[in-house]
């Protein structure tokens, strides 16, 4: 079972429907035991970073997620869920993240419209099973004002250009995060959900 973590940060049903479309059953759950026993964990989310960490902690979800990931369970963070993987964010003050990947979350510099809303391209830096069958230069649907800046260059899987080149897909081993919304990115996004579903077995 793939667990879509419900921690009160936005609409999760679209993600579930996306998985269903590509033949993978996913369960929306706020139950720490269900998350701890999942074969794959998906952390979606929109909203503020600080609120999200508080909600995860209050729901008793932080430690099951960190434990499962350290044991090798495939993990996919989406949008805010990618940002939460990192050490800290500068959104509305400095907040600690899950620190599963080293680095920080920063506000886009001035010069572009914020938030970035719309379809932008990814430039693949290194191969990963998550991107099997996804062509370099494919467009995905992004909505965000902050971006992730990994400390280790090798944690960047694909980049996107929005005034600056930033990391749109990050990951290491079984941990992945995507800044865009695969559940709203038509075939390109559904392919990523399909690939993740296969990784989760």
């Amino acid at each position: 079972m793939i667990a879509i973590v419900d921690y009160g940060m936005g609409n999760l049903r679209s993600v579930q429907k996306g998985f269903a479309r590509v033949g993978h059953e996913a369960e929306i759950t706020a139950d720490p035991d269900r998350v701890a026993n999942a074969r794959g964990i998906v952390l979606p989310g929109v909203g503020a970073f600080g609120d999200a960490m508080i909600n995860l902690g209050d729901a008793g979800l932080t430690s099951p997620i960190v434990k499962a990931v350290s044991e090798g369970v495939p993990f996919l963070g989406i949008c805010l869920g990618l940002q939460l993987l990192f050490t800290e964010s500068e959104e509305l003050g400095v907040h600690r993240g899950l620190d599963l990947l080293a680095g920080k979350v920063c506000l886009f510099p001035e010069g572009q419209r914020i938030p970035q809303i719309g379809w932008n391209q990814i430039h693949i830096q290194r191969e990963t099973p998550l991107l099997a069958g996804v062509p370099d230069g494919a467009f995905f649907y992004f909505v965000h004002s902050y971006y992730v800046s990994p400390s280790r260059k090798e944690d960047g899987i694909a980049s996107t250009d929005y005034g600056i080149d930033y990391v749109a897909i990050a990951g290491a081993e079984n941990v992945f995060g995507v800044q865009f919304h695969p559940e709203k990115s038509q075939d390109a996004g559904l392919k990523i959900l399909s690939n993740f579903g296969n990784l989760a077995g």
């Binding site: 062509p135 467009f139 559904l190």
Partner: peptide, 9 residues
């Protein structure tokens, strides 16, 4: 503009 990408899904 974004071209339509058909991956057969």
């Amino acid at each position: 503009v974004r071209p339509r990408l058909d991956l057969g899904l």
